[in-house]
Amino acid sequence: MTQSSDDTWTVTIVVPEESALDEAGETHKVEISEDETILAAARSAGVWLTADCQQGWCITCAARLVDGDVVHPNARRYDTEDREAGYILTCTAKPRADSTVVVEQYDEFLEYRAANNKPPGSSKLSD
C-alpha cells in the first residue's frame, strides 16, 4: 500500500435506545481514517459494538448507513443489494465521507436477508 492514509472522516455512531449496549440511546462522534474500519475505530474509542467474524460474513455487526459513504473492500458476503437496502457491515466498512450510522441492526438485517432468500437469514429464520 503506497497510498497515504491522511484522510479522516467523522463518523457519527447512533446507538438505538432499545439496544443491549451500555451506550444505548447515546450518539458518539468518532474520527476514522480511510484505512480503518468503523468497528475497530469505535472499539478503540471505547464504544464496544457487537461483532463476531470481522470478515464481513456473519452480519453480527450490521448497521444502517443513514448519511455519507463507506466502502467494504474486504467483506466476504455483502453485495450491492445490501448496500441499496441501506445496510453496512461495520467490521469491514471504511468511511469515504463524513457519515452517520445506526448500529446494532443484526436482527433487522437478518430479516432483510431472509426476506430476500439469502443467507444467513434464509437458513436461520425459515420454518
Binding site: D52, C58, T60, P119, S122, S123, S126
Partner: peptide
C-alpha cells in the same frame, strides 16, 4: 442441528 446441511453451512459464523 439443521436437518439440511446447506442450512448448517449457510449459517456458519465464519466464511
Amino acid at each position: 442441528l439443521p436437518n439440511d446441511i446447506r442450512d448448517f453451512a449457510d449459517r456458519a459464523s465464519c466464511p
